[in-house]
Design a protein around this nucleic acid. Structure first.
Lengths: 147, 147
DNA sequence: AACTCCGATGTTATATCATTACACTAATTG
DNA sequence: CAATTAGTGTAATGATATAACATCGGAGTT
């Protein structure tokens, strides 16, 4: 299924850009970072992303309209169900999977005779570091949104 | 948290539009359906949607960039975690929740000290009726994507 | 009533995200 | 070499969402 032809220059550049960045990047943010490499139009980015998404090397975060390099590209060939936790303060992303959760979704699908094609799970909130630092949104933290 | 002031005219119109429709609607589709009621600009829709999303009467489906009326508006005040199954063929949406799944997410969050604010779960695939009808995408079905 | 606050509204313009259409290149394979 | 297939470059456009600004109207004052 996942055809493993080598990455083209554009695909490699886009993947490198995402891998080098801690945070998700929008397609246009990727474009801006690659202008020095000759990128000029959004399509150059979107086309590379299409391929990288197909092969599971990159994920799209719908809730952010942004893209991240896969944290575990070797582990799944784009098959497994993955959940993302996204810090609203620092924008970092944690990628994890849970077989119990997968089982429950499968059970629901079986009961409803629903044929699952793709599952998107995104959790927004505050990561541990940002909570400690008293990032906005943490209840009980002084000095924020007082009025 | 969920303040229950009555809906304004614009909010009520947007909610009625979504409730009357079996499928999710984009903001611009809602706008078009409400031009007869005097709607002229996207903001009129987006502002009503903001309120309806806050109160949990409407959900946004990130994967479709579209909005649906909540199927169980009385049950949760916008608090519970809900999963959506979306048929790629007929566009209908099933809304369900599963306490085991919620528990697993909570367990992950606790272990990582992550403060969850919102959870988005969207499953794309084919519903039972569309599978039976041989909708595109169903493997083993004759007459589709032969070449 | 006059005053103030706040949420909602109407309108224009603009920002952001994504795709269509078309012409062309390069590698693969019969 | 012809045919096929993926990829590329460019311009134009479509689709989704928000910013900025002026105004309105109800609720609670004083």
């Amino acid at each position: 299924m996942t055809d493993h032809r080598p990455l083209t220059r554009n695909q490699a550049l886009v993947l490198e850009t995402l891998t080098a960045c801690e945070e998700p990047l929008s397609a246009y943010a990727i474009l801006d970072r690659l202008r020095g490499e000759g990128f000029r139009a959004p399509l150059q980015v979107y086309r590379a992303l299409d391929k990288l998404l197909q092969t599971g090397l990159v994920h799209r975060l719908d809730s952010l309209k942004a893209f991240v390099a896969c944290a575990h590209p070797h582990e799944h060939g784009g098959e497994a169900t993955v959940a993302f936790a996204i810090c609203e303060n620092c924008a970092r992303v944690w990628e994890f999977s849970d077989s119990t959760i997968e089982d429950r979704f499968e059970a629901w699908a079986k009961a409803e005779n629903f044929l699952t094609r793709a599952t998107t799970i995104e959790i927004s909130g505050l990561c541990a570091a940002c909570r400690e630092a008293g990032a906005p949104g943490e209840p009980g933290q002084p000095g924020e949104r007082g009025a």
